[in-house]
Structure formats: structure tokens, C-alpha cells
């Protein structure tokens, strides 16, 4: 019990560093310190989860080894990629890492869905299910969208606009919402529709970013960034984990405001950027910015 209380305090510390770090990041003089500060808080949060969340269970040795290996592999690849990337290629790198975060959130939702105990719930119409499904959809959209943004900025994917792209997107969005409602009102727990939902979310992410021009990409990356933040917060809601909740929702709201500020800096509205590929003339002024 003592260890769990220490864990909560560590999460409190991590949450505080995120808030203060973000604040410091928004001033030129303190920005670099702020980044390191938030990183330190993150380290505390991760280490605390590893050591204090559960008393050591020798039967789960495999789990511990895999976690350690995952952390190691992720750290090494992440550091190498981030160090090697050219200064001009930074935005797509951010987009790539953002996509990884989104995928992580979606994968958590998938595993939790399989763990979902049918005996525990009389009907699926409960908040936990909603949180899980939303985590899956938002994480999935963020992942595929970020990957397309990454590919476009790298020059690997060309701008392509499907005919009636906007209509297709909107109807796809509608289908996703209907699927969520079907999944929640249905009774079977291992509904294959869950995976259909996952695929649709991935497709939606691709179609969402596809028609947006290269100059507007940072705005879209920022938007997807806040999506991933929300997905992370939903994960935090699922586990009642305050560090995930603060970190995620903070990025979710700050990211959205940042997206709007970025649009303002280009003298455009967010809607204008998102519809830019279709509006054409209206976006012409901002394109040079």
C-alpha cells in the first residue's frame, strides 16, 4: 500500500513537470530547460510505474524482460533517429514520433478490449467501453494521419485528392460513429466489428491528411498531435492514471490552441486549412507563408 501511495506522488510530480515544462517551453529563455524538466518528470513517471505499480512477481519474468527490451529498443532507435535527422527534416520527424504515440494508444485499446471481461458487464453500454473505442479511433486516426504527413514531407507520398474527398470523409466519419454505437449497444464481447472500426479509423486518418498541401502540413501535424494527446488521456481515464490524464489532456488542449495560433500566424482559419485543397482561391494568400 505504501508503494502505491509513493507511485501516486510520483505521478503528481510528473504531472507538475508537464505543466511547468510546457509553460517554460512557451518562453524563449526557458524553453530548453522546460523541455529537460518535462523529460525528467517523464523518467520519474516511467520508472515509478515499472517498480511500484505491482509487487515483483517472479512468474511474470517474461513480461519484465519484454518491457525492459521494449524500453531499450525504443530509446536506442528514438535517440539515433532524432540525432541523425537533418535540421530541415525536423517537422516530419515530429510527425513520425507523434504517429508512434497514436499507435501506442490504439494498441492499448486493442489489448484492453480483449481483456474486457464479459461477466463484469451486463451490457456494453458503459463508459469504459466508450473510452476504449474512442481511444482506438483517435489513436488510429492519429497514427495513419501522421504517417501520411511524414511521407508527404519526405516527398514519398504525392498530393492526391480523390473526387468528392470531403463527402467521402464525412460519410466515413458518420460510419465510424454508427459503428461505435453498434458496438456499444451490442451484447457480444468479441465483436469482429471492433477490428472493422480499427481499419476504418486508419483509412479516415489517411483520407484526412491526403488532400492537404505541403505548406499547411505543420498545422495538420499540430492538430494530429493534439489528437494523440486526447488518445493518451483516454488511456489515462481507463486506468485512472493521473499522469497519463494530465499529460494527455494538457497536450490535447494546448495542442488545439497552438494549432489555431499557427493558423492565425498564417492569416487563415483552421477550417480554411483543412478545406484548403478544395477551396483553392481562399487559401492562395496563405500559401506563401
Amino acid at each position: 500500500m505504501i508503494s502505491l501511495n509513493i507511485l501516486e506522488i510520483c505521478y503528481l510530480f510528473a504531472s507538475l513537470t508537464f505543466v511547468i515544462g510546457l509553460k517554460m517551453l512557451s518562453h524563449p529563455d526557458t524553453a530548453r530547460k522546460g523541455n529537460l524538466f518535462a523529460a525528467a518528470g517523464m523518467l520519474v513517471g516511467i520508472l515509478a510505474t515499472l517498480t511500484l505499480y505491482q509487487t515483483f512477481d517472479p512468474d511474470k519474468m517474461v513480461n519484465y524482460i519484454l518491457i525492459g527490451l521494449g524500453l531499450l529498443v525504443g530509446s536506442v532507435i528514438g535517440t539515433v533517429m532524432a540525432k541523425k535527422v537533418k535540421m530541415t527534416a525536423m517537422p516530419q520527424m515530429v510527425s513520425f514520433f507523434n504517429g508512434m504515440g497514436g499507435a501506442c494508444a490504439a494498441l492499448i485499446a486493442i489489448i484492453e478490449f480483449q481483456h474486457h471481461d464479459p461477466a463484469m458487464v451486463s451490457s456494453l453500454l458503459n463508459g469504459e467501453m466508450l473510452v476504449m473505442l474512442m481511444g482506438l479511433v483517435i489513436g488510429g486516426v492519429s497514427f495513419s494521419g501522421s504517417m501520411v504527413a511524414y511521407g508527404k514531407l519526405e516527398g514519398k507520398i504525392k498530393d492526391k485528392t480523390l473526387p468528392f474527398n470531403q463527402i467521402i470523409n464525412n460519410s466515413l466519419f458518420l460510419v465510424i460513429i454508427i459503428l461505435i454505437i453498434i458496438l456499444m449497444t451490442g451484447q457480444s464481447i468479441n465483436n469482429p466489428l471492433f477490428y472493422v472500426l480499427m481499419v476504418l479509423a486508419l483509412i479516415y486518418g489517411i483520407l484526412f491528411v491526403m488532400p492537404i498541401g505541403g505548406a499547411d502540413m505543420p498545422v495538420v501535424i499540430s492538430l494530429l498531435n493534439s489528437f494523440t494527446g486526447i488518445a493518451a488521456a483516454l488511456g489515462g481515464f481507463l486506468y485512472g492514471n493521473k499522469a497519463m490524464l494530465t499529460g494527455g489532456i494538457l497536450v490535447g488542449s494546448a495542442g488545439t490552441i497552438l494549432t489555431i495560433l499557427m493558423c492565425k500566424a498564417m492569416n487563415r482559419s483552421l477550417l480554411n486549412v483543412l478545406l484548403g485543397a478544395f477551396g483553392g482561391t481562399a487559401g492562395g494568400v496563405g500559401k506563401s507563408a
Partner: peptide, 18 residues
């Protein structure tokens, strides 16, 4: 704007705790 976006991006990496 861009560093802040990038910093926020790192912060939502808390999903790894999940």
C-alpha cells in the same frame, strides 16, 4: 510554435506508462 509542438508531442508520450 514548432518547438512547442514538438515538446508537447514528447509529453503525450506518457501513453508508454499505459
Amino acid at each position: 510554435h514548432t518547438p512547442l509542438m514538438s515538446g508537447a508531442n514528447a509529453i503525450h508520450g506518457v501513453v508508454v506508462v499505459g
